[in-house]
Nucleic acid binder design. Structure first.
Lengths: 343, 343
DNA sequence: TGACTGTGCTAATACGTATTACTAGCGTAG
DNA sequence: CTACGCTAGTAATACGTATTAGCACAGTCA
């Protein structure tokens, strides 16, 4: 812009005082505030009102060290519609909590270009701390974050990375275990698992909650892969004599359910389906899968509050898992007598 | 945090050089860059690598004056689900364009608390410029923005506020006119209008496009109010002998359409419905209303690009209206002979 | 030998604000 | 009348970086 920004020096000149006086008028601490008599104070404030001057937050931050800004870092872009349903609930909670605590949000997303926290022109540090969002996360960067002095909190559980990672995650392990127990209570002894059992912590947690919970039940089929042809998956499930199948991916469950319906296989009478997690607007598919609900909004809120604790009070690392409520749904039922006889 | 941040001074000490040398190694201009010989350069970079030092963007900004941050200001909170569908497409476009241009976004949203641009603790200025989003907008603040030197662009047309307001809006006037013309071409002569005819520019634009376009057609009923009981609205429409009704609010159209269906009144055979605008996920209502589509994502992109032009090149005020494509839909049909006889 | 030209750095400064240290002027207690 | 304290400010400095100006030294040319 052509006209340079107003500075306190300009205000001082116009009011016939020094820059320091202007600063005192603006934000003198109680003991210093009364050093400026009302007349001078009013004269300065008049100039400020007339000019519409506001202090440059950047310079302010230089002195104070804090900005009241929280960074939200995602590797994937936050808004494109494919991701929007995933990110939006988290952002909702983050925004609300930030608002309550008097912080603004700096969005740092990585669309297309691989964006890194430690890059050449890292603007992340403009924020007082940051929230890490997203499924993938570079291990090296996490390690550097843990080692560094920049406050951050991850949304989603993370394994240690050269030290404990502060996070707010979902209690997937416990929720998965609860669902397995429920299936067993309904008589299911021949259970299958379709989903990955390695990779991101959130994925792994399902398996960790699942496998030990089986107890006496038989794991008659596993498919450690997602997005496979649903017909083949269904074939394998039936061939193995599974009465109940756990999916980690809603999309897989939907596809297999559709094929089953098409073939006249009844869910849950012939085959029970459990989905380990939920997805916004899952109702659109006309099926309420038995699953657990991920408290995304609450996770965002909690992570934000935790981050502010770390920023303001240098609070120690916390690791929190929020409960995932079980969604009853319509796809987990008792084992049919047909199956019991079969087995 | 307990451990102070690393500064260039620390790096300089560790590498046995001066702070200026570190700065040159980091980002010396071409002519100065080769003043540092490879050995020294490597020595400094080694220390930087080992310590994980990154320059403080705040200090950087102090010197350079630019931040590569764009503020996004909304009076209403951006994420809460009620608003999410409204804001998300704009944010999508804004985020994409910002990413391409190498800017980050500072989200300044107003949840609950009345948030003002000119307040005590204005962090907006941290950004190099800002995008104004949202339906309501304080006139005084807009005037001050126009008068000031802070670059901004509004999403949505705005009337002059002590000067022209830079904006990227939707061509609601033209699109509304086109829909009126279409209705007239289908024989409609008895037309009604349900919606506000004052208030925000975006609302007003519908009326501005509508009223003059009527030409010879009769405006048999107007209801300058929204969210009224749909039964009463329908009664009034029928009593007035309207064959086609224009709604500014999708919600009103949905409600009236539902009552009509319930009463056995066929749309569009007995009554045509046109909606002036669209809404994400309108399909969920099982009806494709004849309307026009608002290019929200494109508006966000265009506004961002315009803002960057203003920030970087001090470009003059631009005012752009993007075309709104007509959505054919199923609710505008030819006038039935019954009506023609009736009239 | 003395002036000149690079080379390879460092010193100094600016950016805008907050804050600490100080000072000039004046009244008053001792 | 000196010392002290109070009032109403101002001067100076720090924050961390970018950048300009400049300095010490070596080599070159006349």
């Amino acid at each position: 812009m052509v006209t340079r920004r107003l500075t306190q020096k300009d205000i001082a000149r116009l009011a016939g005082v020094s820059q320091a006086t202007v600063s005192f008028v603006l934000n003198g601490s109680p003991e210093n505030a009364n050093r400026i008599p009302p007349e001078t104070r009013e004269r300065v404030q008049k100039v400020i009102r007339e000019t519409g001057y506001v202090a440059d937050p950047v310079a302010r931050r230089m002195v104070k060290g804090l900005n009241r800004i929280l960074g939200v870092f995602t590797y994937e872009p936050a808004f494109p519609s494919a991701q929007a349903d995933f990110f939006t609930p988290f952002l909702l909670g983050i925004e609300e909590a930030a608002q309550e605590l008097g912080y603004d949000l700096l969005l740092l997303t990585g669309a297309g270009v691989k964006r890194r926290i430690f890059g050449d022109n890292v603007r992340l540090r403009l924020a007082d701390g940051c929230i890490i969002l997203g499924r993938q996360f570079d291990r090296d960067e996490l390690t550097r974050l843990v080692a560094g002095d920049f406050p951050f909190v991850a949304v989603g559980r993370r394994d240690d990375a050269g030290g404990p990672v502060p996070y707010v995650g979902g209690g997937y392990v416990a929720a998965t275990t609860a669902l397995v127990d429920r299936a067993k209570a309904l008589g299911h002894q021949r259970i299958a698992y379709v989903g990955l059992n390695e990779g991101a912590e959130s994925t792994l947690d399902r398996w960790i909650g699942f496998e030990p919970a089986l107890g006496g039940a038989d794991l008659v089929h596993t498919q450690f892969a997602v997005a496979q042809p649903p017909g083949e998956t269904l074939d394998a499930l039936l061939a193995a004599g599974a009465t109940c199948v756990f999916f980690t991916e809603l999309a897989d469950a939907i596809a297999v359910d559709a094929v089953a319906r098409h073939r006249g296989i009844s869910v849950p009478a012939d085959l029970s389906i459990v989905v380990l997690g939920n997805h916004i607007r899952a109702e659109e598919h006309g099926r309420r899968f038995t699953s657990f609900s991920i408290p995304r909004e609450a996770m965002g809120r909690a992570a934000t509050q935790m981050l502010v604790r770390r920023v303001e009070n240098d609070a120690p690392v916390e690791q929190v898992l929020l409960d995932c409520a079980i969604v009853e749904g319509d796809t987990l039922g008792p084992v049919s007598t047909k199956h019991i006889r079969n087995t």
